[in-house]
Design a protein around this nucleic acid. Structure first.
Lengths: 204, 204
DNA sequence: GAGCATATACTCAAATTTGAATACCACTCA
DNA sequence: TGAGTGGTATTCAAATTTGAGTATATGCTC
């Protein structure tokens, strides 16, 4: 998650202070598509400033005093160059779809079937809600959003629909008990396993 | 990425040394589905040992001397409990599909069209190869893999096929130039934008 | 048989992320 | 009137990941 690209990208539009960046990300519903923490936002901003890719445009003191002043940042020429590089770098990343639940799958068979079933059910519910929410966003914004942003959300919906399909299968298999199969290998399976070990693995 | 879950999960099967864990992950083609670095593997192993979740079962000196000895680890009772908790925690994660290219989308319009088009094309190629590779894995292993592992790979293929579809759209739009639209907002768009700002955002 | 890649088996500093905490203001609800 | 909730705006230590480096053995080619 290149926080730097995110920040520079937003500053390509116009100058902003960190909290405004955070808000913009929320307002645009991007936090549904990738996760962000305040901590790394402020950290990245500091780094960018140190590297001369952004600079303070203005420091605003909010009336009411004791609150920290906000610093408004602007992208520099070096920053605009860095943005182009980061954009390409992000494209170049070995990049494949990821889902936190992938990691649980190889191990569910060691878990408690009833608990697992419930967890899958919850994920499925969350997934369905997410699809609805994002459809609402697209309907309201789709036509006037920058095309790339609209396509991101559209992609996110597509992926979420695939997720729904996958979770539905998982749920069925959890209910039938099939999901928890595979504790032991029969000799035939073992032989197949040895064969499979020779499959080429593309380094990822 | 809970390295801990991954390690404990593998040690639920039988004892292993760190390098063997690394190998197993590769042999099972899991590195296609989630990314792992040696550094975090060894770090996590150390943590797990400190926490008493795993213990050294045996230290093996390899003939030929000067190589570091391998320590074979075994999961403890505390570790088995921790495994169950980590499994549930992983299920509970706010969990949605992610793709590194999502981050580029809102900003492609500031990038160089020709470069962007090429990058998308490359991703599409990589994606197609991945699908083929994973199909080969499933065909060879699908029947004898623990069901959960097979479903993970199946899910990964499903997601990759969705990715292919999405990338194809992106490519078309890059070629037609539509992808790069959205530099300025018309007054009507601005009004729509203000409306959209009021959309509820589920915190993620 | 010299050179070179590849596999084994890690180690470590530096970069980054996480998660929680801080502090202030404005609002409501009882 | 004061207690609690939510938004604004950030800081920071601790946890974790990254990326590069180390060192040896083994196999392969020219």
């Amino acid at each position: 998650m290149s926080m730097r690209l995110l920040i520079l990208g937003l500053l390509m539009e116009h100058e902003r202070h960190p909290y405004e960046i955070r808000q913009t990300i929320k307002d645009r519903n991007w936090n549904e598509c990738f996760k962000l923490r305040d901590g790394s936002l402020y950290y990245a901003v500091d780094q960018l400033r140190e590297d001369g890719l952004i600079e303070a445009a203005e420091v605003v003191s909010v009336p009411g005093e004791n609150r920290p002043d906000k610093t408004i940042y602007r992208i520099t020429d070096a920053g605009r160059n860095a943005f182009q590089e980061l954009l390409v770098a992000q494209f170049k990343q070995v990049s494949y779809p990821q889902h936190p639940m992938f990691l649980t799958m190889p191990f569910v068979r060691h878990g408690d079937p009833k608990t697992v079933e419930n967890m899958i059910l919850k994920q499925l519910g969350a997934c369905e809600h997410r699809i609805e929410r994002m459809h609402a966003v697209l309907e309201l914004k789709g036509s006037f959003l920058p095309r790339g942003s609209a396509l991101m959300i559209q992609g996110f919906i597509l992926f979420s629909e695939t997720e729904k399909e996958w979770l539905t299968t998982l749920l069925e298999e959890a209910r039938s008990g099939k999901l928890f199969e595979g504790h032991k290998l029969t000799p035939a399976q073992l032989e197949a396993y040895l064969k499979y070990k020779q499959l080429p693995t593309d380094d990822v």
